[in-house]
Simulated assay, not measured.
Amino acid sequence: MLNAARTGDWDLLARLENDCSSQVQTLKANEVNTELPPDLRNKKIQIIKKILADDKEIRDLTEPWMAQLANLMKSSESSRKLSQAYGASRTS
């Protein structure tokens, strides 16, 4: 997911996010509460920290794109309203 965000491949990022969400649900559904040995617990903690760091970087990369997209949508909506208000579709 991080590589997709780094390269600006938003379609791939969206697909990977859906896959990730599905896998998280599967993990939650099959979760068993057992005490992990210290080495596995530490490994799990490191994996979670890496996931959180990657998630932060993905958000840092996607937020400007999302703001740009929101501005484009706002601009498009404004153009549509102007067209409706001033009859841009009229013929000269």
Score class of each variant (00 low, 15 high):
P64M: 04
K49T: 06
L13F: 11
T34E: 13
D55K: 10
A67L: 06
N18H: 08
L69Y: 06
Y86W: 12
R80L: 15
D60T: 09
A5T: 02
L40I: 04
G8R: 07
T34H: 09
L69R: 10
R80F: 14
R80S: 12
L16F: 01
Q68C: 01
L40W: 03
T62W: 00
K28W: 02
N42D: 14
M1Q: 07
R80Q: 15
A29H: 10
R90Y: 13
A85D: 15
I48F: 07
K56F: 03
A4S: 12
W65S: 01
K50M: 10
L69S: 05
I48G: 01
D55G: 03
Q46S: 13
A29G: 09
S78E: 14
Q46E: 14
M66K: 12
L13E: 03
E17Q: 14
C20E: 11
Q46L: 09
L61W: 00
K50N: 08
K49W: 01
S21D: 11
I47M: 10
K56H: 03
E17C: 08
E31S: 07
P37C: 03
I47Q: 13
K56W: 02
N30C: 04
R59H: 04
N30W: 02
P64G: 04
P38W: 01
W10S: 08
N71A: 15
A5V: 01
